[in-house]
Each structure stands twice: as C-alpha cells, then as structure tokens.
Amino acid sequence: MSAIKGQPNKQNGSSNTRSLLVVGGVIVIGAVLLFGYLMWYVTPAENMEMVKIIAITSDGCIAETLDGYSVNIGKCQAQPGEYVDALVDNKLKERAAAMNPTS
C-alpha cells in the first residue's frame, strides 16, 4: 500500500537481483581470497634434505635437520643416529623460526 491514496505501490524486481549479485560477488571474492591464503601459506613446500633420526615413535620417525629443526618424516626403516634423505616442509621450518626468533 502506498502512503498516498490512489497511487499503487510499485516494487522493482531489479533491487532483488542487485542484492543477489552483491551477495554473490562477496562470496566469490571471499572464496578467491581463501583459496589464495591456502595455496600461499598452508600448502607444504617440501624439499629433500639429509636428516638425522633422533627418535622413532608410533607417529613416525622424528628427525633433526642439519640446521637444527626437529621434523616428523613419517614411517622409516632407520635407527636413531642414522642419516637419511627425507622430504622436509620448509614452511614448517619458517613457522618454527618465527616462533623462536633467537635461533
């Protein structure tokens, strides 16, 4: 109903379409930003490194890289004290260095 008698209340269908486009655009932008964050900061950047096995646990072998970081390399067939080549996540080392700035 209109506030002035005799004038019909006209509603535009374009306002509903516009609001749906805005919401859809915000969702797409959020999805692109989330995808970028996951690809840049979360995905591992693994390199093959020589590591020294320091312990064998139920979760896998714990090894120490040559620059002093402890990493879990998964199941291995080595004994503590042996050196093996293993895939090591460099981003894990970067996060560890950020948490301990004295190293």
Rank of each mutant, 00 (worst) to 15 (best):
M1V: 12
S2M: 02
A3G: 03
A3D: 04
I4K: 05
I4C: 01
G6Q: 06
Q7H: 05
Q7C: 02
P8Q: 05
N9A: 12
K10R: 07
Q11I: 12
Q11E: 12
Q11Y: 13
Q11S: 11
N12P: 05
S15W: 13
N16H: 08
N16K: 06
R18E: 11
V23A: 12
V26F: 13
I29S: 03
G30H: 14
A31F: 11
F35E: 00
G36W: 02
G36L: 01
L38H: 08
L38Y: 07
M39A: 13
W40H: 15
P44R: 10
P44N: 13
N47R: 04
N47A: 11
M48H: 01
E49I: 00
M50V: 05
K52E: 12
A55R: 11
I56L: 09
T57G: 14
D59V: 07
G60V: 13
G60T: 13
C61N: 10
C61T: 06
C61R: 02
I62D: 01
E64C: 05
G68A: 07
G68K: 09
S70V: 09
V71G: 08
N72E: 04
K75N: 06
C76S: 12
Q77M: 11
G81I: 08
G81P: 11
V84C: 00
V84Y: 04
V84L: 02
A86S: 10
A86K: 03
L87Q: 13
V88L: 07
K91Q: 13
L92C: 01
L92N: 04
E94R: 01
R95Q: 04
A97F: 05
A97G: 06
N100R: 02
P101N: 00
P101L: 00
T102W: 00
S103Y: 00
